[in-house]
């Protein structure tokens, strides 16, 4: 059977898909942005609450500081409030907002002047961990977190946006303002390093 997205997790029973299609989500967000451009505070608050969890998840992997995360989210959304009228639909609303957040986060990290990369030596070595079937999910998540945090911020961002935000490589290139091939190269190196670091857990 051909691999499909989350195909293994889905139940075989056909259930009515009540989720809005991507185009509907996108058009809803475009409507919100248009209203924000007209100064609609209620629309802005809706957009803020919609993006807060996504941006905090994204920024958490970049900065590792709760106060910095809130500050960057607010700086990002302030730009959205100020510049909503400049959004020209040449990219998705999410790509536009994430690209602002990415730039703000890079500036904040630079200001902090301390590395946010973790030390992958903290990952339990193969001989120290329990057998595969006994490794708890939490332990796995923790190890993956440490491994991700040890990647350079650009590689980590590509991995994060791909696997945990479901972004395509074109969107990631727009978000990070770099060529598509750079995105693919960063992903290639990131996967290779992650495989080495997580070999005891995931092989």
């Amino acid at each position: 059977m051909l691999p499909r997205k989350n195909a293994d997790d889905k139940a075989d029973v056909e259930a009515p898909d009540v989720r809005p299609r991507p185009s509907q989500i996108e058009s809803h967000e475009i409507q919100l942005i248009s209203r924000v451009a007209e100064g609609d505070l209620h629309a802005f608050e809706t957009l803020y609450r919609l993006y807060f969890p996504r941006l905090t998840r994204f920024l958490d992997r970049m900065t590792r500081s709760v106060y910095l995360i809130e500050e960057i989210v607010n700086d990002t959304m302030l730009v959205v409030w100020q510049k909503a009228d400049t959004y020209n639909q040449s990219c998705k609303v999410s790509t536009w907002i994430f690209s602002i957040a990415y730039r703000k986060a890079l500036k904040a990290i630079k200001r902090q002047d301390k590395p946010v990369e973790a030390d992958f030596e903290r990952i339990p070595a193969g001989s120290d961990v329990e057998p595969d079937h006994e490794v708890s999910r939490q332990q796995c998540q923790k190890s993956v977190g440490i491994a991700l945090d040890s990647l350079p911020v650009e590689q980590r961002t590509v991995v994060n946006l791909t696997y945990y935000h479901g972004m395509g490589y074109q969107e990631i290139a727009e978000t990070m303002d770099c060529p598509v091939n750079t995105v693919k190269t960063r992903m290639f190196h990131a996967r290779r390093r992650l495989k080495t670091m997580l070999s005891s857990l995931m092989d």
């Binding site: 803020y48 609450r49 807060f52 969890p53 905090t56 998840r57 958490d60 992997r61 590792r64 500081s65 709760v66 995360i69 809130e70 989210v73 999910r137 939490q138 796995c140 998540q141 923790k142 993956v144 977190g145 991700l148 696997y163 945990y164």
Partner: peptide, 11 residues
């Protein structure tokens, strides 16, 4: 196994 966030920002 998306790593859990340690931070818990308050909207």
């Amino acid at each position: 196994v998306e790593p859990r966030s340690n931070a818990n920002p308050d909207v």
